[in-house]
Amino acid sequence: MSALLELRGVTVRYRLHGARQAPLTAVDDVSFGLDAGEMLGLVGESGCGKSTLGRAILRLVPLASGEIHWDGDRVDALGAGAFRRLRSELQYVFQDPNACLDPRMTIAQSVAEPLRALMPALDARQRTQRVLQLLSEAGLQAEFGARYPHQLSGGQLQRAVIARALVPDPRFVVFDEPVSALDVSVQGQIVNLLAGIRRGRGLAGLFISHNLAVVASLCERVMVMFRGRIVETATSAALIAAPLHPYTRALLDAVPSLDPGERARALRRRVLPVADGTPVSAAGCAYALRCPLAVSRCRTERPAPVPAGAGREVACHRAAEWPAGLPAGAPS
């Protein structure tokens, strides 16, 4: 067992309002492994359960079933106190930098907070020093430490949030859509900062995003998630060049092209009616309702992830029919 982090059959359910309703399965039987120093991408649309999966690893939501192994040990069954000792190794960067810093604390206080609990050996002077060191690693001058969150721009706030996540020297960080709340011109700065930090520290991580292009610039390997299930796992390059799952194809088609020549094609694009949200039978493929390639088997039988060569996995009954990947444009 060489993986640093391993998830086996992780399932998370939310109880909905009105106890009579069946609980909502946000993460459904997800298994994957992640090596030390690896940055794994996780893409999918909002509500597909990708943030819930990240939260479940950090125990911000409870598991319904499944196991989480960290560094060879099973950690999902640990008591709260024992798990708190692990918090210095596992950290989380939240999506909205405006919301995840306490508005009544200075940046330095927020960044220093994990040190109090996770590195109690440090004295006040060492703490200050460590905070300044981390702020500078995240590209913030020391003077920002004395400011309050509302006095910083979105990009600066996200740097502060990254500094706070790195302050206890973690080995694994969940990056939950760290750039999607930022201005386009600033997104690249944060992605490049993360790439640098990752190289410098040999940091492992789970990078969650809805934009495949962003994920591809940071991660070698990407998982595609739909309605709580991982539908395809592949290297970024292979995924972009030859997507095997129809949903991956749809995600790729959604990445905007700025090529003026493709404008005409996009404008002629057939306007697809939206799926009306009818729940698919739990037995079938979650994507069957929206899938232009679905056959009757897809509606009754749930496809399991199967190896598709070169470390790839895909959960689609028909994937074997297009071993070279699905071509661009809406398949018919």
Partner: peptide, 26 residues
Amino acid sequence: AGLLASVPTLAAAAGPMATIAGAPPA
């Protein structure tokens, strides 16, 4: 030009992303 270059595209995926230095004025 900077704004256009910062839009993440699949063609430019892998490798550092284009950025505009600094932040929009307060």
